[in-house]
């Protein structure tokens, strides 16, 4: 599917990734319009808290957008890039606030990409876009099925370009309608959403 088929009108994009996804994100960030009228939520598997604050600093250095770690019950605002905190699942409430959940790991992961895709899909429906990047496990695939069922837009990184192709590949095996994204298309894809 061509990029220009995606009209604006999206309110939130959730980007999930694991091993090999940080570089894709960092390369894309400078080209993402800073005052986009949509919220960007990033759920990456991290090793620990120190690792995560490093990530936040790194991403900040690449954009004029506000980049922040998610706080619980925080309203979800457009033009902000939110980063999932380590060791919590990120959920979206109906009133469009975040809530955090320290329950069991899902796919050996907390945060789990599945959890956020699914929860955001229930609230945002067709105004949600989900992007799944490189990674070595299968987190995200189930969440994308749920997102698809709620008419969310889905984009998956081309496994051939992924440092770790397992995650995009397992999603492609089960998801029906999706765009295949080259890493260098990520910024343009997001800019077109809003």
């Amino acid at each position: 599917m061509a990029e220009d088929l995606i009209g604006p009108g999206y309110q939130c994009v959730v980007i999930g990734g694991s091993a090999g996804s940080i570089k894709v994100l960092i390369d894309a960030l400078p080209a993402i319009t800073p005052h986009l009228r949509l919220a960007i939520v990033v759920v990456l598997h991290r090793k620990n808290a120190a690792d995560n604050s490093l990530l936040v600093h790194l991403l900040r250095s690449k954009t004029l957008m506000l980049v922040k770690e998610i706080e619980e019950k925080e309203p979800i605002c457009s033009g902000i890039c939110y980063i999932a905190p380590p060791d919590y699942h990120v959920l979206v409430e109906k009133d469009r606030t975040f809530s955090l959940d320290a329950s069991e790991k899902v796919n050996f992961s907390r945060p789990s990409i599945d959890v956020t895709f699914e929860s955001a899909a229930v609230v945002y429906g067709a105004s949600l876009a989900c992007v799944l990047l490189s990674g070595a496990n299968s987190d995200g695939a189930h969440g994308l099925i749920m997102a698809g069922a709620h008419n969310a837009l889905i984009a998956i990184q081309d496994p051939a370009t992924a440092e770790m192709p397992a995650m995009p590949r397992s999603a492609m095996n089960v998801v029906e309608n999706y765009h295949i994204l080259q890493p260098e298309q990520l910024a343009g894809f997001i800019n077109n959403l809003a």
């Binding site: 019950k73 699942h89 959920l91 979206v92 409430e93 109906k94 809530s99 959940d101 329950s103 959890v115 929860s119 229930v122």
Partner: peptide, 9 residues
């Protein structure tokens, strides 16, 4: 209770 996690549970 926050609904999103209650629903998940």
């Amino acid at each position: 209770y926050a609904r999103a996690s209650l629903k998940r549970r």
